[in-house]
Every structure is written in structure tokens, then in C-alpha cells.
Nucleic acid binder design. Structure first.
Length: 955
RNA sequence: GCCGACUUAGCUCAGUGGUAGAGCACUCGCUUCACACGCGAUAGGUCAGAAGUUCAAGUCUUCUAGUCGGCACCA
């Protein structure tokens, strides 16, 4: 067979995906067992504007590993894929394009034309991310692909909105909100990022108090001792009160100054009036507990329309709420003629300048301040009084908290710290601002009549009916993108709220089996049956940045509208950092493009790298790491190449080969590799059950490379490559190729392309190797049965025997290396040991001689070798000597033995210490003590032997 | 300010109370007929520091130091 010496990933990556997809392997309908248990995952929908980054690649890999694994185990498997409309991002992108190509703004062309443009853009460019998902090899069901803006999902959105409104859980109200003056929309608290301001300043402004004490005024000091000697009087008060602020421009909207009611400095000012400079307005001095006397001057200017805390104070004291800014953060007419139209930062300078002119600027201090920024465009957020739609979170939150308290769902992996963070966040949750001043998104299903009455309805027709008129206008705003994402686990499975009975049937039950012959394609109308089958989903894989934004909200809506949790488990994966441990970001331009990595090292090697990182832990990206998995892929390629070069007369035994393994596994070496295979299979399954992906990767890597390649292939090589055409050789060839086939299955969820490519080349493969539930499907490794390991095939004696053989070979190789024996020089090996070990070595004489490059092995009761020999001992106290007449360097040999003795000494000392400790002997488990004792006597024996050897050398 | 995580070999990281592990890099040797993206053999650790619990601590507790997160506040 003509197979290239090096694996070329691109070759395999081109061929298989299209066949997998078009053959319907990814759809749950491929499973022909009507009773098959369901397994489902929904993808966190990537933004339609997005392109693949490492975070995606990581989470996608984990989801696909689980899906492919479960599918091979016979589950009815759905990995649901879809894309998010990503309101702000998409609107901004198309706005930019419109400006560039037509020099127009969205307002120029109007709402309908603009949203049409976005749909156009989506249809043209929105497929980028889905092409990349195919490249990753994800076994997602494209026949069920969803988009958050498609009709059925939009219907679910309207249904949820209407029902929450009718229950009073959604309301419209006027609040201080986070306003992005650049995107000109309100944002939720979660879309705002606190960042340190570059040169924060704290400005101390003097506000004149009406009827202030003139004598004090000239000094311009508050509270300090009068230099004119006038004693302070209870009736007298200073002419000014000084307030400190970081945003002087907001003083134009001040409607009070607040002090702490117990603050002695200001007690007599409470109730007085301030003549607010630059405005001609009079504002009161009020007392409020919120004020901290120690901070700043202890007096706070109150701007209820432009600060959340001030708004609260305003409510308590019935203050006027004066809005002084426009939606682009320029000052409006309320700010006064001199300021109207000025940008907020220009207004700040001007206000400060004016105060200075008036002698009212006391001082300016440098001040570290963190300011809220728009997560997306990094503009400083302006807290603004605005009328918006909100979701009341008290009862929603309780649904999620109750689920966690009563049932412990969702289970977070890793549990620490996410369970606590999630719970704490829920406990302190504030209402959710859901309206957005955008055009791209789900328009709020609320209509208004001329009198401002609101009609919330599932459709315009319903609203007309409610209002008794068609003269209504729909709310201009759209919903937060996360509102539709919150419904994703059920809206994608067909829930639109119509004729919805509670999901009561266990999801393992599928009412009617798919008719035979149905390829499972084109099942978009599977409707609510999908919901019954696949909801709740099994596991959600996502990053910690959207636990609040997304995970928590899915839990709430799932509990509210389906009455069941949306998923059992949530895997929170780590962040992929750059090689210096820094977060990847566009501004730092230190991102690593997964597609470049695919190009350079292959998709499978990238997947192994990602799955090989510990669950939930951040890790720095190293190309060297991918390189090692690229090498691993090449190793698998070449091991298979070797098997195929020697496969005449061999064939892969079908799945039952495991059971009748006794028939074909005749040698201890065969029994050993079958044992190792089954131990590995068991451990891999155990690791995946607890989402220890890196553990599974390590197990597979070492099984394949160390056990299978380094030892098994080398031990059976002579037999496999024998030119003699006989049944024994062909049997051996069938064993190795069958073990290889099982190994490829174990690797498949991680390395789908390579394993399919190689599997298809093996002799004797067919769909008879498939899991029975996929019996009639076209042959593919992805539908074979995943090996779970069989205890009856684990042979501990074989393990021990081969371990001795390996130890012997290794020790002899060690002697060769330490003594600088040339590779071409042949040796003879003398072994003294008991009957059992001698028979093990005798049975594997040929293999040992080959791998240790020895001419002969002499087995005896005791050693009879010349002084010029290198010696060592084996576990179980067998002695080894390699005569090195003329080759031995006595100095070196002495040093080698002494080194070995030293190590044994150190260990023995530890053991002696432990075993002479009565506390240990009495309290430690019996087996532990026994274990140490036998190790102790073994070391003593080995020491005796080595000492004798050393003496003989010195004699 | 509150909560949390991390600190293990030169680097990146695993580690389940019981003799410290991997990959890469390093050192030595090898054109051994699957693979130099390879083979063989080494070397390399006071597990951040201190105290405690325990027969036994990298692992559990407390404190300290450093690194990095999340949340809140910010007149």
C-alpha cells in the first residue's frame, strides 16, 4: 500500500465533512433505536458578525467531543447549531458599510430600508462563522440550524414578552439608565465595563448660601476659625458651602445639595437655600443619611436626572429631576443658553472656567476615578433619566435560586468558584433594562395610541383589537439581544408558546420511531416533539463572561416557561491567553487565529491541544504544544501505515472480537495490549463522564504512543513483518489491526478527521462495526461503538509479566547507554531469578534479544559471570549481569552502582523512619503498612546484591 | 471595600492525604527496513513563605507575600 510518510491534515480535512453532513450522520434521526436515550447540546450562538476565535474553538471542541462520544455510545444525539443576530454589533457594522458605500446614515434611508439592508448583509456575509464551524469538524445538525431573528424564534420572543407583561413582570418606567451617547442606546448593567479614567480630577465648587454671613464670605472659608475674631454664632453661617464633584457639568442640573443630618458643620444649613451659580436657580440644602461626612467636603451636589444615587435622594426629598443633556451627551436648553449644544466635556471646562472667574472654584485635585464605559465602543457611559422597558427580576431570580437550593442545578464544572458567584449575583440582582434604541432586533410588541395608552400584544392585529382602533404606533425600540438568547434552549427546539403543554414525558421516550428510510433531513417542522425529546439539554459549554448575561437568564426563562431547567450541567471553560499570559484583544493585536493554527498544524492537533487543557483553567497558548499534538497525529498516521504495510491476510475483527478475544490473543504480549486498551477505554469514559477532557487526552496520548507504538509494535514487529505466509502471522496481524481500530475509535471524538481517514483504509471495515443503532448507515468510524472497556479482558498476570520484560529491556539499554556500548555491539544477558521470572523471559526471548540488542539470554539460579560485567537488579529481586569483557570502564561501573545504592538508601531511610513510627504502624491502614514493609525488604535485598557487586568490582 | 482563584522542573501546565508527573526545551547516544513531526538513555523539584491539623500534607486549616479575576462603591 502506498501511503505518504507524513500526515497531511488538509487532505483528510477536505474529504470527510461533506459526506458526514450529507449522509445525515449529524442528525438525531440517524439513530434507529426508538428507545435510545437522548443527548443534546445547544451551541452558544456566535454573533452573525463574528468570526471564529480561540474561545469558540475551545468550547466547540469540548461540545463536539461530548457529542461524538455520546453518539458512538448509542444516544440519540442532537448538537444544535445557530447564530445570534447580535443587535448592536450588526447594526454598527452595516451602518459603517452604508456610510462607506452610499455616504448615507440609517436615518437617511429609514427603518424598513435599513433593516432590509441588514438582512441582505446577513444573507451575504453571515455564513462566515458557519463555514468555520464546518471547518472545525463539528458534528452539529445543520438541518436544525437556527437564527435568533427567524420567525419561529421571534414568535417565542413575542410570546414571552406578552406573558411577562401580563403578569406584571415586565414594566415600562422612568429610571436612571446607562446611556451610551455614541451608540445612542441604553445598555444593561452587564454591558457596562468599569475602567480607570486617565486623568481623573475632583473639583471643589463653592455654592453661595443665601443670607450668608458677609464677614466670613470674604475669607472664602467654611468652618475654619474666623481671623477677625468674631466668635462663631449659631445663627451665623458661612456664605458658601463647598461641594466636590468629578463631573462639574452636571451642576447645571443640580436641584439640591445634601449633607448628613448629624454633621455638626452643616447642621445649621439644613433647610437653607443656595443660589446655584450659572443657572439663576435656587436649590435647597437637604439632609440625607446617604451622605458620608468624611468624604470630600461632606456636602454633595444632587443631580437627580444624571446620577443613580442622586435620583434616589431626589425621590426621597421630592426634588425636581432636571435633564440637562441630549442623547448625544451635548447639553440641552435646560443647561442654559450659554451651554446649550456644548459637548459634555466642553461644558465641563466651561463650567470650571466660569466658577474660576466668579472666584467660586476652591481647588482641583487629581483623583483616581473609575468610570463606566460602553463595553462595545468604550465611550464613557452617561447615566441618564430615561423611559425604558424593564424585566422585574425578583421572582425570576427566585426561580433560579430555588432550583439551585432545592435541586442543585445547574451543576457547574468546575463548581468552585462558579456556583457561589452565580448564586451571589442572583441574590443581588437588579431589574433588567431590555429596551434598546436600535432598529436591528426584535421590535418591542407594544403599541401606543394618541393618548399614550399602551397595548402589549402578540401581533399588530391583536393590538388593534385591544385598542379598538388601528391608529396605533408600535414602540420604536427593540429588545436586548440577550432577551432572545435567554430563550435559546427551548425556542430553538420548536417552542413558540402555542398549545404548549408542560413537558412531562421523560426525554428518553420518543413517541414514534422515525419511519425507516427517512434520512432525517429536512425535519424543520419537528416542532414540539424536539422539545419533548431534547429538553432539558444535557450540558452547556461556555465562558465565564456570560454566566450572568446568558446562563442565568436561560435558567430563569426555562423554569418560567417550560417548568424545567434548560440544562443539567454547565461547563465553564478557561480563557485562552497569548504566550505571555495576556488576554487576547483586538487593541493589543495579540490574538491567535484558530484558522491559522488549523492551517499550520491541522484541525485535529488543534482540537487535542484545546481539549488537553484542564477544564476551567486559563492557559497561555504555546505553538509548541500544538506541535506536539501535530507530531502525535503523525505518529498515529505512521503506526497505521506500519500496520497497513503488513496487513496482508489480516482484517479488523468486528465488535465481538473483544468477547472471543481468547481465540485470537494468544501471546502474553497480545493479552497485555488488550488489557492496556481496556484499562484506557475505561479510564477515558470515566474522565469524560466528569468532563475531565485533559485527563482523557493524556490517557489516549500515552496509551497510543507509549504502550501501543513504543512497546507493542516493537515487541510484535518481527512476527508481524514475517515473510512467512501463515495463520499465526495473520492472526497476529489481525490482533494489531483490531487493537489499532479500537484505538482510533477512542481517539475519534477528539481527532475526527485523522481517525476517519485512517479507519477507512483498514482491511475488513464495514458498517458491521457500527453501533447496532446505526447498523444500516454507510460505513464511518463516527457511528462505530465507542469502547467502554471490558473487565473480563483485563489480565493482571499479563500486565505483570510484560512489565518485567519492559523493565529488563530498559535496564539493559540503560547499561548500554551508561557504558557507552556502541549500538552495533551485541551483548549477552545473564539473569538469575526464580522459576517464574525465568519462564517469562524464556517465553519472550526473541523480543528481549531484539529490543536489548543481545545475542543471548542466559537464565540460571545464580549468576556465573566474569568480574568485568555490568550488573543491576529488577523488581522482584532478579539479578542481571551483562559481561563486558574489554568494554567495561570499572570507574564508571562503580559510580553507576554507587549512584543506584544511594537512591535506594534514601528511600530505605524514609521507609525505616516511617515503619519505626508506632503511630504510623498502628493508625495507618493495614495494607499501607504491608506495602511499605514489602518494599522495605525488597530494597534491603537489592542493596545486598548491589553491595556484593560493588565489592566484587573492588576486589 | 467585598468575594474568589492561582503560586509545582528552564518554559507551559497536570496532580484523587500515602515514594512528586507530562509536553516542550536541555544533556548524551542513534541514518535500528512505520515515523528525525523519529528512536533509545539521562539530568532537572525545600511543590511561594510561615505556622497548624494528621501516623502521614503539593493536597486540609490559618496567616504572610506576590500574580490574576469577579462584584460593589466612587460627591
Amino acid at each position: 500500500m502506498d501511503i505518504p510518510k507524513a500526515y497531511d491534515p488538509k487532505e483528510a480535512e477536505q474529504h470527510h465533512y461533506q459526506r458526514w453532513e450529507s449522509s445525515g450522520f449529524f442528525t438525531p434521526e440517524i439513530n434507529q433505536d426508538p428507545k435510545a436515550e437522548a443527548f443534546s447540546i445547544v451551541i452558544p450562538p456566535p454573533n452573525v458578525t463574528g468570526s471564529l476565535h480561540m474561545g469558540h474553538a475551545l468550547q466547540h471542541t469540548l461540545m463536539d467531543v461530548l457529542t461524538r462520544w455520546k453518539r458512538m455510545l448509542g444516544y440519540r444525539t442532537l448538537f444544535l447549531v445557530g447564530v445570534d443576530h447580535a443587535g448592536i454589533s450588526t447594526q454598527l457594522m452595516v451602518t459603517r458599510q452604508l456610510k462607506k458605500e452610499e455616504q448615507k446614515t440609517p436615518q437617511d434611508i429609514g427603518r424598513d430600508a435599513f433593516t432590509a439592508k441588514i438582512w441582505e448583509w446577513k444573507n451575504k456575509y453571515g455564513g462566515e462563522i458557519t463555514r468555520q464551524i464546518r471547518r472545525e469538524g463539528l458534528s452539529v445538525d445543520w438541518t436544525r440550524e437556527r437564527f435568533t431573528m427567524e420567525e419561529s424564534l421571534s414568535r417565542a420572543v413575542r410570546e414571552v414578552f406578552v406573558r411577562l407583561y401580563e403578569e406584571g413582570w415586565i414594566y415600562r418606567g422612568t429610571r436612571i439608565v446607562n446611556w451610551c451617547p455614541r451608540d445612542k442606546t441604553v445598555l444593561s448593567d452587564l454591558e457596562v465595563k468599569e475602567e480607570k479614567a486617565k486623568d481623573g480630577k475632583l473639583y471643589y465648587l463653592r455654592y453661595p448660601v443665601k443670607d450668608g454671613e458677609k464677614a466670613r464670605a470674604r475669607e472664602g472659608k467654611t468652618g475654619s476659625g474666623g481671623e477677625d475674631g468674631d466668635p462663631p454664632s449659631a445663627i451665623r453661617h458661612p456664605q458658601y458651602i463647598t461641594v466636590a464633584t468629578t463631573r462639574p457639568e452636571t451642576m447645571l442640573g443640580d436641584t439640591a445639595v445634601a449633607v448628613h443630618p448629624e454633621d455638626e458643620r452643616y447642621k445649621n444649613l439644613i433647610g437653607k437655600t443656595i443660589a446655584l451659580p450659572l443657572t439663576g436657580r435656587d436649590i435647597p440644602i437637604v439632609a440625607d443619611d446617604y451622605v458620608e461626612s468624611e468624604f470630600g467636603t461632606g456636602a454633595v451636589k444632587i443631580t437627580p436626572a444624571h446620577d443613580a444615587n442622586d435620583w434616589e435622594i431626589g425621590e426621597r426629598h421630592a426634588l425636581e429631576k432636571l435633564v440637562v443633556m441630549n442623547d448625544d451627551a451635548t447639553m440641552n436648553a435646560n443647561a442654559g443658553e450659554a451651554f446649550t449644544g456644548l459637548d459634555r466635556f466642553d461644558a465641563r471646562e466651561k463650567v470650571v472656567g466660569e466658577f474660576e472667574k466668579l472666584g467660586l472654584l476652591e481647588k482641583v485635585e487629581d483623583y483616581d476615578v473609575t468610570l463606566p464605559h460602553c463595553e462595545r465602543c468604550r465611550t464613557v457611559i452617561e447615566p441618564l433619566l430615561s423611559e425604558q422597558w424593564f424585566v422585574r427580576m425578583d421572582e425570576m431570580r427566585d426561580l433560579a435560586l430555588k432550583l439551585m437550593r432545592d435541586e442543585g442545578f445547574p451543576r457547574f464544572y468546575p463548581e468552585v468558584p462558579h456556583k457561589k458567584v452565580y448564586t451571589t449575583w442572583l441574590e443581588n440582582l437588579k431589574d433588567w433594562t431590555i429596551s434598546r434604541q436600535l432598529w436591528w432586533g426584535h421590535q418591542i410588541p407594544a403599541w401606543y395610541d394618541h393618548d399614550g395608552n399602551v397595548y402589549v400584544a402578540r401581533s399588530a392585529e391583536d393590538a388593534y383589537e385591544q385598542a379598538g382602533t388601528q391608529d396605533l404606533t408600535q414602540d420604536e425600540d427593540v429588545l436586548d439581544t440577550w432577551f432572545s438568547s435567554a430563550l435559546w434552549p427551548f425556542s430553538t427546539l420548536g417552542w413558540t408558546g402555542e398549545s404548549q403543554s408542560q413537558v412531562s414525558s421523560p426525554k428518553s421516550q420518543v413517541e414514534e420511531p422515525e419511519p425507516a428510510g427517512s434520512s432525517g433531513l429536512g425535519t424543520r417542522d419537528s416542532g414540539t416533539r424536539d422539545l419533548e425529546t431534547f429538553y432539558p439539554t444535557d450540558v452547556l459549554v461556555t465562558g465565564r463572561d456570560i454566566i450572568f448575561l446568558w446562563v442565568s437568564r436561560m435558567v430563569m426563562t426555562g423554569m418560567k416557561f417550560i417548568g424545567e431547567r434548560p440544562f443539567d450541567d454547565v461547563i465553564i471553560h478557561g480563557t485562552v491567553l497569548d504566550k505571555n499570559g495576556q488576554r487576547m484583544s483586538k487593541t493589543k493585536n495579540n490574538g491567535i487565529d484558530p484558522l491559522d493554527v488549523f492551517e499550520k498544524y491541522g484541525v485535529d492537533a488543534t482540537r487535542m491541544t484545546l481539549a488537553g487543557s484542564a477544564t476551567g483553567v486559563d492557559f497561555a497558548w504555546r505553538d509548541e504544544r500544538v506541535e506536539s499534538f501535530r507530531n502525535f497525529a503523525n505518529k498515529i498516521w505512521n503506526a497505521t501505515r506500519f500496520c497497513l504495510m503488513n496487513s496482508a491476510g489480516a482484517r479488523v475483527e468486528d465488535a465481538s472480537w473483544q468477547i472471543k478475544a481468547g481465540d485470537i490473543t494468544e501471546t502474553v504480549i497480545d493479552r497485555w495490549i488488550v488489557t492496556r486498551l481496556n484499562r484506557t477505554a475505561k479510564a477515558v469514559n470515566r474522565a469524560l463522564e466528569t468532563y475531565q477532557f485533559h485527563e482523557a487526552v493524556q490517557l489516549l496520548y500515552h496509551f497510543f504512543w507509549d504502550d501501543f507504538c513504543d512497546w507493542y509494535i516493537e515487541l510484535v514487529k518481527d512476527e508481524i513483518t514475517s515473510p512467512d505466509d501463515n495463520a499465526e502471522r495473520d492472526g497476529a496481524r489481525s490482533v494489531i489491526i483490531s487493537v489499532l481500530e479500537q484505538a482510533l475509535r477512542l481517539l475519534h471524538p477528539f481527532m475526527p478527521y485523522l481517525t476517519e481517514e485512517l479507519w477507512q483504509k483498514l482491511p475488513g471495515i464495514s458498517n458491521a462495526l457500527h453501533n447496532p443503532v446505526y447498523a444500516s448507515s454507510e460505513q464511518t468510524i463516527m457511528l462505530t461503538t465507542f469502547p467502554t472497556g471490558d473487565d473480563s479482558l483485563i489480565d493482571e498476570d499479563a500486565e505483570k509479566e510484560v512489565a518485567s520484560v519492559i523493565e529488563l529491556i530498559t535496564k539493559v539499554r540503560n547499561i548500554r547507554a551508561e557504558m557507552n556500548i556502541k549500538p552495533g555491539d551485541r551483548l549477552s544477558i545473564h539473569v538469575a531469578g526464580d522459576e517464574a521470572i525465568r519462564s517469562v523471559f524464556a517465553n519472550n526471548d526473541a523480543q528481549i534479544r531484539k529490543l536489548a540488542r543481545a545475542d543471548s539470554i542466559v537464565l540460571a539460579d545464580s549468576l556465573d559471570v566474569p568480574k568485568a560485567s555490568a550488573r543491576t537488579v529488577l523488581t522482584g529481586n532478579a539479578e542481571i549481569a551483562v559481561p563486558l569483557e574489554g568494554l567495561i570502564d570499572f570507574e564508571k561501573e562503580r559510580a553507576r552502582l554507587e549512584g543506584h545504592l544511594e537512591k535506594l538508601d534514601a528511600e530505605l531511610q524514609r521507609l525505616n523512619g516511617q515503619l519505626s513510627n508506632q503511630n504510623f504502624v498502628q493508625k495507618a491502614p493495614k495494607e499501607k503498612v504491608e506495602e511499605l514493609r514489602s518494599r522495605q525488604s525488597e530494597i534491603e535485598q537489592q542493596k545486598r546484591t548491589l553491595s556484593q557487586n560493588l565489592e566484587a568490582l573492588n576486589a
